[in-house]
Design a protein around this nucleic acid. Sequence first.
DNA 1: ATGAAGATGAAT
DNA 2: TTCATCTTCATC
Length: 194
Amino acid sequence: MPSPRLRRSFFDRPVLKVAPDLIGATLLVDGVGGVIVELEAYHHTEPAAHSFNGRTERNAVMFGPAGYVYVYRSYGIHWCVNFVCEEEGSASAVLIRALQPTHGLPAMRRRRGLQEERALCSGPGKLCQALGVTREHDGLALDVPPFRLEERVEVPEIVAGSRIGITRGTELNWRYMDAGSPYLSRAVPREAKP
DNA sequence: ATGAAGATGAAT
DNA sequence: TTCATCTTCATC
């Protein structure tokens, strides 16, 4: 039987508290998805956050209430999906970086043009392609179809590290991952901490 | 109006 | 390590 669904209020608290609590939750888009095994937190006071320099057309959703989806285009090629956290106006979010595929594997393989399970959702651009997430999803609530988010049933070993592809603000408390998962976008760094 | 950089991924 | 590909945003 399915786990309880996460409500939007789950995200209405500090982004650094939400991030580790989301590891192990299941994300589905139109029934396709899997278990979140890696993500990164972006607080609006961080120079690396898209919201750091204020509201723009692209990041507008980040300035709204918690529990909504922020999708942006990366390198002109890929899509990346975030969940907005904290109270309205705070403009903080978590970037979903990797999933363990559990639902709709055939659809994922078709969209990705690959067979290898490890390669389906092991990166922010990859998982958006596998789940069919695009600009169309920007601004949607994540507790309403096509999105569905289920509570985790077991708490994995969660470790934190520094964010990937970020040159400023590299402290070891922004990237969270399931230490034992083979579906991460990158290996657990040596300096990772519990 | 223009240009430089970018929360990536795949191939070499 | 290179490159594809193009939007976004700051600056001129």
